[in-house]
Design a protein around this nucleic acid. Sequence first.
DNA 1: TATGAATGAGTCTTCATTCAT
DNA 2: TATGAATGAAGACTCATTCAT
Lengths: 216, 216, 216, 216
Amino acid sequence: MSTSPRSRLRATDARLPPTAAAPPEGTRRRILETALQLFASRGYHDTSIRDLASALELRPSALYAHFAAKDHVLAELVRIGHEAHFEALETAFQGAKPTPADQVRALVHAHTRVHAEHPQLALVVNEEFYALSLELAAPAQALRDKANAMLLDAIQRGMAQGQFSPLHPHITAAAIVGMGSRIPHWFEPGGPIAVETLAKTHAELALRMLGSVSGA
Amino acid sequence: MSTSPRSRLRATDARLPPTAAAPPEGTRRRILETALQLFASRGYHDTSIRDLASALELRPSALYAHFAAKDHVLAELVRIGHEAHFEALETAFQGAKPTPADQVRALVHAHTRVHAEHPQLALVVNEEFYALSLELAAPAQALRDKANAMLLDAIQRGMAQGQFSPLHPHITAAAIVGMGSRIPHWFEPGGPIAVETLAKTHAELALRMLGSVSGA
Amino acid sequence: MSTSPRSRLRATDARLPPTAAAPPEGTRRRILETALQLFASRGYHDTSIRDLASALELRPSALYAHFAAKDHVLAELVRIGHEAHFEALETAFQGAKPTPADQVRALVHAHTRVHAEHPQLALVVNEEFYALSLELAAPAQALRDKANAMLLDAIQRGMAQGQFSPLHPHITAAAIVGMGSRIPHWFEPGGPIAVETLAKTHAELALRMLGSVSGA
Amino acid sequence: MSTSPRSRLRATDARLPPTAAAPPEGTRRRILETALQLFASRGYHDTSIRDLASALELRPSALYAHFAAKDHVLAELVRIGHEAHFEALETAFQGAKPTPADQVRALVHAHTRVHAEHPQLALVVNEEFYALSLELAAPAQALRDKANAMLLDAIQRGMAQGQFSPLHPHITAAAIVGMGSRIPHWFEPGGPIAVETLAKTHAELALRMLGSVSGA
DNA sequence: TATGAATGAGTCTTCATTCAT
DNA sequence: TATGAATGAAGACTCATTCAT
């Protein structure tokens, strides 16, 4: 009769990014990776504990030795995703020349890489974030706010220095950040466009949007 | 103990856009509007028939006098959303001067308006689309493809005429279309930014991204 | 939202009575004492092996080194409770003057003391007894029958000797025994009423109920 | 291997007492009566929704059209039990001659009848009460307090008038009330002892315990 | 059009228990 | 003795849906 729901993304090998602090190991890691793939392709609410267990060739009850509840799995993925994202942004920022244009370029480049290299995680972080309770979402929300502030700050310094002339800073910042969020929906890692090409292009697009005097 | 999931968007009054063909009336319309609000704020899979019925002050079984199944409600919303979107794009295109720059401006302007004026519908169309079976999604998919083709065609004509110099046409097109999809996540209708401001800004941003010689 | 179930008794320090034969030691004893407290306050069926283990700061599987199964813990408590009860009754009976009135007084006094000094054990013995299979309950049942017979025998001798004139021997015996069973539900050890006061009062009440000629 | 748990009482036909206000009807009534039998014989925590549904020849989910949750069924039984009990006590009190002895006799007689005629309900009310949250137990607790106060008040008036000379009023009141609570554990309705015999005997036992000058 | 009662499959989670270490 | 990981059955409850009224 009716066809099953489709996957929301093209990518199929869900990897966890390396994180500084205590990377998960063993079964806990396998659960996270499998959940990542399922949550990304079908959504948190459309993935049951049974689906997850069966993909892991485990009984549902076995999962509860590793996570207290289904939403704790999501919360952990969201936390990992935000940490990897924030660390990448910080590293990029620190490696950039101290000009607003270079900082924006570096931030957008890193933002894009993270989304392109970990499209499942990016999708889960962006779309399933709202399935978490405020409590479980809080650590991620804090990082999210800090990351946004980094970019906004660079933009505002660029404007103050006469380097940027965005039509509307708020709208432009949203558009720049949004380019990253959209990546998992169309970009295929290993496909015709290289991650590096995408990252460089997004960085230059951001500068164009900002009307950067030294833009592409 | 734990807080309930948050809403994905700020908007709270879910209106259906006027459509050319057979606008829904009476209870059927109420169901669609209420489902729109719920599907947008919590997602299709996290909204039960009971939630929907209770928001309507109706018993669950009463809904089946109006829709054959839960996914038919979503399919109808997705259809309405795509039709309104496509009609807006067509009208805009026909009203534009026959230059690629003006056509892109008109298309992006219309694309933005639709997303900003109907954020719930935009969200449902973009995020819950994948919950539909291929069969139920097919009519919407056709319109989606046609709309994308309109924009891509204008871009390619602009490039052929030397009006546009995008860094990477594919990536740029994705970025332009993506600006619209992100609107429901941050834009607040009735908030500090007017819809018209947003639409004009996005249109000019698109031309900047394309490196339009007559850009803003 | 909703409040947790309440405890059935006021007492909170669950002690095991000294028993003649092989008192439990070490972890086995800790398990019994903790189980006693939990079974008494929340009931056997509402206490999980996990609850028990967690109260003991042990992992659930560790309990199985000490008891073959959950119901063996209960069976052991029930056995201990019945043995302590029966021993107390026997000792009291042997120490009493050989008159029915004095024997009843001694039996009720001892019966009351046991219930007042070990309210958790009394509760578990009386209310959770039925959770045991016939096999596991059998040793306790035998002691229970013997204890009842001791009291009934004294009453009947008292009647035969014209010392007692109960309205209805069967009903009266049930009422006398029942006074003890109720103790854990209202009596607070260490509270305003001393155990000895309670025991003496119950003993005299029993004689009043029997219409003892030498009663209070 | 092991024998199943035994029933806590002998009675097998669980009837609901008539109540003044809105007696339950149809399936709701059947659920209550069947739950009453199961909760009484095996306890609330040892009776699953599946057990209940299967005894009713219904699917578990069907129960949720009538009760919001398992504990609501218990709460309703507890409420009905307390209301029937309190109404019986009030009626008895109003029909008694205005002397403490007659009032105590009437109250204990009614208290006993209720327990003897509805042993399952008495058991559930007394033993499963603690499985309810404070919220759900509150209405019953209020009636319980009022009923106890009625008896205590009569006892105290009797003492003030020199009619009663209890050894210890508090202990004696507990013993009198406790006679009723024990009934379901040993009394068999339709057995050798008539309900009326039991009620009269308990009433006279109470007066004996109080040392009533006009007692039996 | 709407309802109340019911269903069968499914939800997440907990249960007592086992077993290799 | 104690643990961590696992299991299979069962826990209460919700799901979308049907159907007689």
